[in-house]
């Protein structure tokens, strides 16, 4: 439960940062995607249900505030959260390379899905150009922020649930604790 609440606040803070502060620090016309980091990290660390929860909130916020049609971002984020939840089997606490790879792949997947939903449908066919100019720089920029955020979530989780409680198959045991 503590995890749900802390995640909720992290999402709100991440969303606020992303819409207000980050546009001022953009590089190559690209801003990092904090919401993807949160969705991927929560799914990866705590399992499918958490991925779904975080994805639903992130997508819902984005849709309600900025999109014309509600549902598209929820769809994308929920799928990403779920896939990361499956990858939860690969989760080990001290390893940093796999979660970062997960975040990068999630961001690319987000780019591709968003492109398919919003751009390909309107006849913008030059996928490679979008891939090179938007998706890849965004993924790289996101990883840089992802390292810190992932570490932070990790630290926060350690504070909320002291280490001796954590067991390896914690997805089943701890979801509703």
């Amino acid at each position: 439960m503590k995890r749900f609440i802390s995640m909720f606040f992290l999402i709100v803070i991440g969303f606020l940062l992303q819409t207000t502060v980050f546009p001022h620090i953009q590089l190559l016309n690209v801003i990092p995607n904090l919401l993807i980091v949160l969705t991927a990290a929560s799914g990866f660390m705590w399992g499918r249900k958490f991925g779904l929860f975080t994805g639903f909130l992130c997508g819902g916020l984005m849709d309600c505030m900025y999109n014309d049609v509600i549902g598209i971002c929820i769809f994308i984020f929920v799928v990403i959260g779920y896939i990361n939840g499956i990858a939860n089997k690969l989760y080990f606490e001290d390893d940093l390379s796999i979660p970062l790879a997960a975040i990068a792949i999630s961001d690319l997947l987000y780019g591709i899905l968003y492109y398919i939903c919003m751009f390909l449908m309107r006849g913008r066919l030059n996928m490679i150009s979008y891939f090179l100019n938007i998706m890849v720089p965004e993924a790289i920029y996101t990883i840089i922020f992802g390292i810190f955020i992932y570490k932070f979530i990790h630290w926060l989780d350690g504070k909320l649930y002291p280490p001796e409680e954590v067991s390896l198959d914690h997805e089943e045991n701890k979801l509703f604790s």
Partner: peptide, 17 residues
């Protein structure tokens, strides 16, 4: 099972969309 939640959310997305 989370996969049923996923299906429910996806259906919800289509509907609300």
């Amino acid at each position: 099972d989370p996969k049923y939640i996923l299906v429910i959310i996806l259906l919800f997305c289509v509907l609300i969309g």
